[in-house]
Amino acid sequence: MTVARDVTERVKPPRAVFVPFRMGHHFGVPFAGDLQRAIITAALERLSTAPRSGDIVDLPYRWADVRREGKLRERGATGLTSGARTVVPDAAAVPESGPSG
């Protein structure tokens, strides 16, 4: 799991999944359990689907969306709004690219 794609391109782990998230937030935002789980399972899928060593998968998330929906979720939990839409990636939409991008 990485939030620093350029570092991962240099280190070259055999399997890697990149999310464009803030440092320290590799699995998303607080209390977004479904998002955290989706990111882990996306990483685990690479165990059987990675075609070659060194590939990096970019998960189709945007930090701004994840952060906004996390805030909505927490406000919903405290009764300030009705809740947030769950951000779960469409597996078919997950693009692939090599370590050099």
Binding site: R10, P60, W63, S97
Partner: peptide, 14 residues
């Protein structure tokens, strides 16, 4: 190369 949904928030970290 394929499209990315978003680049890393702190580019050029390495």
């Amino acid at each position: 190369m394929t499209a990315r949904s978003e680049t890393q928030l702190r580019p050029g970290l390495w």
